[in-house]
C-alpha cells in the first residue's frame, strides 16, 4: 500500500466515534496489518469504512458478517 493511502487509512482508524473501535483498529494497524496480503488489506479497508456500531458488534462477536473475506479479517481483529 502506498504511504499516502496507508496514512489516510491510519487516520481513519485512530480517530473513530467509539473508543472500542479506536483501540481495536489502532492495535491491529500497529501489529497485524503489515502481515496481510494485498487482498486482505483491501478487506480491512472495507471494514474500516463501516459505521462504528456495526464494526464493534462484529469485533465483539455480537453480530456476524456473510462476506467470507471480511469475516476472516474480523477474526484476526478479534484475536489481535
Amino acid at each position: 500500500m502506498e504511504r499516502k493511502d496507508y496514512e489516510r487509512l491510519r487516520w481513519r482508524c485512530i480517530r473513530r466515534g467509539l473508543l472500542e473501535v479506536d483501540i481495536a483498529l489502532t492495535r491491529f494497524l500497529d501489529d497485524g496489518f503489515d502481515k496481510l496480503n494485498e487482498d486482505q488489506q483491501q478487506a480491512f479497508v472495507e471494514l474500516a469504512d463501516m459505521e462504528d456500531h456495526d464494526l464493534w458488534h462484529l469485533i465483539s462477536g455480537q453480530a456476524d458478517i456473510d462476506d467470507d473475506r471480511l469475516a476472516a479479517i474480523v477474526e484476526l481483529l478479534r484475536k489481535s
Partner: peptide, 12 residues
Amino acid sequence: SKVFPTRSHTVA
C-alpha cells in the same frame, strides 16, 4: 471536521 460527521463522538 477531523472525521466524517457520523463518526463524531456523539455517536457513542
